[in-house]
């Protein structure tokens, strides 16, 4: 073992300090909001004077929190349908694009990925204007269409990554052994890119769940979405139920992530 010099020690200290600071900034707000959600007080104040499940009881009360429940189900439904439709479209697009090496394919790839970098606010406004020119009234289906554009690239990207990692010799082997193209797709391609698709779906679902910019423009009073609703509550009443909603969302995401990680090695994929 080599003796560490003073500069090594300093280096380790500085890196450690920065890492600690980073973790603090990331984790501290989560801890604060969760702690606040268990407060007994009437206000969103930290630290809570005492702990209770009062606001969770309030949140799950079917009568008093009915608008929140509606908004939550709207959000889940929109996220679910947009993810499923987005996954189908993205997988088909990724399959086509990896098969073609023409420059036009690269152009399509870039344009399919562009919603990831295009400011969602601009897109939300553009979508609102576009749909009103077409005379389409705000509805859940419209929200699904709007979210679809923003979240499909997540699935597209992870699927594309899985497909480019797929050894082309596997499909040649499949064909050589007498399998049709579709048989090879079903038994070789799909199982091998499934983890990539699942990881993309997870990211897409989460991204739709907390999407504000698109929902802001495309929803109205009847099609309230959870993040918009939360923002409304925040502005008007400073209702502590917001903290409880945040707690539920964090818990749900955490559970979903653990399940996903078990199934597909999501964390490996996100860092890749």
């Amino acid at each position: 073992m080599q003796r560490s010099t003073l500069s090594d020690v300093t280096y380790n200290w500085i890196v450690g300090l920065l890492a600690g600071l980073g973790i603090l900034i990331l984790v501290a707000p989560v801890i604060i909001v969760i702690a606040t959600s268990f407060t007994t007080s009437q206000t969103l104040r930290f630290p809570p004077p005492d702990l209770s499940l009062r606001w969770y009881r309030e949140l799950f009360d079917p009568v008093r929190s009915a608008p929140i429940h509606t908004a939550a189900w709207n959000s889940v439904w929109v996220a679910f349908v947009a993810t499923v439709v987005g996954a189908v479209l993205s997988v088909l697009a990724a399959l086509a694009i990896t098969r073609v090496s023409r420059p036009s394919a690269r152009l399509l790839e870039a344009s399919f990925l562009s919603p990831l970098i295009l400011p969602s606010l601009s897109y939300g406004l553009a979508a609102l204007m576009f749909f009103s020119v077409l005379g389409i009234r705000p509805s859940l289906n419209l929200l699904i269409a709007g979210h679809l554009v923003v979240i499909a690239p997540f699935v597209f990207r992870t699927t594309l990554a899985s497909l480019t990692q797929l050894d082309p010799a596997l499909l040649e082997a499949s064909a050589n052994l007498g399998a049709s193209r579709f048989y090879g797709f079903r038994r070789i391609t799909l199982p091998l890119i499934a983890p990539g698709i699942a990881a993309g779906c997870f990211l897409a679902f989460i991204s739709s769940m907390d999407n504000v910019p698109v929902s802001l423009f495309l929803s109205n009073a009847r099609t309230g979405m959870l993040p918009i609703r939360m923002w409304g509550m925040m502005e008007s009443t400073l209702d502590v139920r917001i903290a409880a909603i945040a707690g539920v969302l964090i818990l749900a995401t955490l559970l979903l992530m653990i399940v996903m990680d078990r199934l597909t090695g999501l964390t490996k994929r996100m860092s890749a």
Partner: peptide, 20 residues
């Protein structure tokens, strides 16, 4: 004939075994 109908067996360079 397409590859699937040629009844030719191939041992690929890196074997191309189906990993899953």
């Amino acid at each position: 004939l397409p590859p699937s109908k040629r009844e030719i067996g191939i041992v690929f360079q890196n074997y191309a075994l189906f990993p899953h």
